[in-house]
């Protein structure tokens, strides 16, 4: 289990997080929902081990993140942050090599460790044939999907039990078709045992995919529970200040909030 307890974080005199707690269990999706500036990214950065907690703590399997060597931690959790990464002439294949931990000794004639999984993941997110492309020539949607592929390769093979995937608005640049592709992939990843933290503004995605949702606002925890209990018109009005209710499609799936 990856859990944050009582995180408080003050930056530049502003309280970004105020006694925030959340936990993600294997084979579940935790949706992190809240308005802009609510503190979702800061929670994720704590969970990633990037920020050392000012107060409170983050534990992976009961051990504080600071006690995990960076290299070991990288095999247990992977991150897709919201910023685009600088390309610096690197190619898609370079990023994937680095994610799989391809040793540099073999880099001159890089042969991917698990070529089948690599190409399967690329195909799943409509990136087949992009391996020779430079990172900075990808569209923002492509780069976002590529980084999800890289994160999954970083976590290793098909058995993802005890591995965690931290996603900061992973669908913000996606068109409806690719959004669907990501959703399908994330369901499969959950089936394989990974715990997923999904920070998103797409309430419908959070409702469809989340086993649990956390609503935060102003760095503080508003509510936590099953998505249908959390993403209610009352709580959403309170949090976002606009009336929002789930809209269902013909099949009864939540298609949007409006």
């Amino acid at each position: 289990m990856l859990e944050a307890s009582n995180l408080s974080f003050v930056a530049g005199g502003r309280t970004v997080l105020d006694r925030m707690s959340c936990a993600v269990r294997p084979a579940t999706v935790l949706a992190l929902v809240g308005p802009n500036g609510a503190g979702k990214t800061t929670v994720l950065r704590h969970l990633a081990g990037e920020i050392v907690p000012q107060s409170g703590g983050v534990r992976l399997d009961g051990l504080p993140l600071a006690a995990w060597p960076a290299e070991t931690l990288a095999r247990r959790r992977a991150v897709v942050s919201a910023q685009t990464i600088p390309g610096n002439w690197f190619r898609v294949s370079d990023l994937l090599d680095l994610a799989t931990g391809e040793t540099d000794a073999g880099a001159i004639d890089a042969s991917p460790l698990a070529p089948s999984r690599r190409s399967a993941l690329l195909a799943a997110l409509d990136l087949s044939g992009s391996e020779a492309a430079r990172l900075d020539r990808l569209s923002s949607g492509e780069q976002q999907r590529l980084r999800l592929v890289a994160a999954l390769l970083q976590l290793g093979g098909d058995d993802l039990r005890g591995r965690y995937l931290l996603l900061d608005e992973p669908t913000s640049h996606q068109d409806p078709r690719h959004l669907r592709g990501i959703e399908v992939l994330l369901r499969a990843v959950r089936e394989q045992g990974a715990g997923i933290v999904l920070s998103t503004h797409d309430l419908a995605l959070a409702a469809r995919l989340g086993d649990e949702a956390v609503l935060i606002h102003g760095g503080a925890f508003i509510a936590q529970g099953a998505p249908h209990e959390i993403l209610t018109p009352t709580l959403l009005l309170e949090t976002y200040g606009v009336p929002l209710a789930p809209l269902r499609d013909a099949a009864g799936r939540i298609a949007a909030f409006g």
Partner: peptide
């Protein structure tokens, strides 16, 4: 190599 993709990404990829 990882650092070429930014310090944050390098840390995510396991660089101390």
């Amino acid at each position: 190599d990882c650092l070429a993709l930014g310090e944050q990404t390098a840390f995510h990829l396991g660089v101390d």
